[in-house]
Simulated assay, not measured.
Amino acid sequence: MFRRGILGVVPCGLPSAFSTMANRDPTWNMDTGASSHLNSHTSNLNIVYNKCLYPSVCVGDGKFIPVTNTGHSILPTLNHPLHLHNVLVTSNIIKNLISVRQFIRDNNCTVEFDAFGFSVKDFLTRHILLRCDSSGDLYPVTSPSPTPHALLSVSLSTWHQRLGYPEEEVLRSFVSRQFISCNKDKSSHVCHTCQLGKHVRLPFSSSNSIVSRSFEIVHSDIWTSPIVSSGGFKYYVLFLDHYSHYLWIYPLRAKSKMFQKFLHFRSYVNNQFKSDISAFQCDHEVSDPHWRDAMYDEYNALIKNGTWILVSKPPNVIGQYL
């Protein structure tokens, strides 16, 4: 039953002497090598059975010691009790042992050891259920160490930010199911991030621009899609005529193709409307003077080399009246 453990093996001639000891240490000790919980006396258990799951257990030196009873015990905590199932009772053991493997399976928790003690945490929420400090060679289960008040002062608004801004009903459900711990009253603070996320559009300043004909001012912007379309398009460049509010949308596979689409759009305006773009306003990379200068240099080179031609409306242009 044991691979190794913190066991004191009693010589064959002395089991009766150990059973007469009046002062037995009732302290439990965490043991990562024990395969079952072991206790030296039935008085340390909440429920005791006369039957034995196993007649004996094997200790670290290869010897077997007898098991007299089986029972259950409970470790009280500030949150909820932790259970010790199927504890084997044997008077030949000096230290009461908790099998860490059996303990975490029965209580759906984790046990984390450090140089100053150990912490028992809920497996799902990572909330500390029990903290025991230790300064010796073993990890005894002592009285729960007080948790700093700052760790307990968690409000719903704090959880709202930590969990990615869910609705209040979701947070209330987590609290009722003990997935999270909250001991502060509901905060009346309005979440600024949620308010911005619900805006249809961001506020913008009033424009003083006045136009009298189409294409006197054309506005442009590039939208990045969160997913790639079936045709491989991830970006979309928009051209909006300030006068008519007519919109053209060009799909792009890369942002570097924006200049080519601008040339297509300008050709389309010259060919279909017998007009030209007087002013071009944008918020993306074209506003960079270096990028804009390079774009005009390339455009002038096309004109100079005679490679510029007017084309008909591209088939992948979508027009929509706003």
Rank of each mutant, 00 (worst) to 15 (best):
W28S: 06
V48W: 02
N300Y: 14
S188F: 07
V100C: 08
S214Y: 03
Q272S: 07
L7W: 01
L14W: 13
N86S: 06
M258S: 13
F273D: 04
P76R: 06
V10W: 05
K257G: 05
V111T: 02
T193P: 06
P140L: 04
R213S: 07
R177E: 14
S134P: 00
R292L: 13
L196T: 08
Y268Q: 03
I222E: 02
H37N: 03
Y243E: 03
D293W: 04
N96K: 02
L152S: 15
L247K: 09
Q102A: 15
N108R: 10
Q102V: 14
D122I: 09
G232Q: 05
G5L: 07
V218N: 00
T27Q: 13
I303T: 15
C194G: 07
Y235P: 01
D283N: 11
V59L: 05
I309W: 11
S119P: 02
P148Y: 03
L38S: 03
Q195A: 15
V89Y: 03
I128A: 10
H192E: 15
S209E: 14
Q320L: 06
D241P: 06
I128T: 12
G62M: 06
S43C: 14
T193S: 07
L138C: 06
N108K: 11
G231R: 10
I93V: 12
L263T: 12
V141G: 01
V211D: 04
W248D: 01
P55A: 04
T32Q: 10
P144K: 06
K186A: 15
W28K: 05
S229A: 07
L240E: 11
L129P: 01
S275N: 09
S135T: 15
G232R: 03
K255Y: 03
A34G: 11
L53H: 05
K261E: 12
C12Q: 11
V89R: 00
G136H: 09
C12M: 07
R131N: 10
A254F: 02
S176T: 15
A150K: 13
C191N: 02
P15A: 08
P11T: 04
E167F: 14
D293L: 02
K304D: 11
I74A: 04
Y299P: 03
N92C: 01
I309V: 14
R162N: 13
I217K: 12
T193Q: 09
H189P: 08
S153V: 04
P15Q: 05
T27F: 09
D288A: 09
T307V: 08
G231K: 09
I6W: 12
P55D: 02
D221A: 08
E168N: 06
K257I: 05
Q102I: 10
K261V: 08
A17R: 11
H127N: 15
D106R: 07
S119H: 09
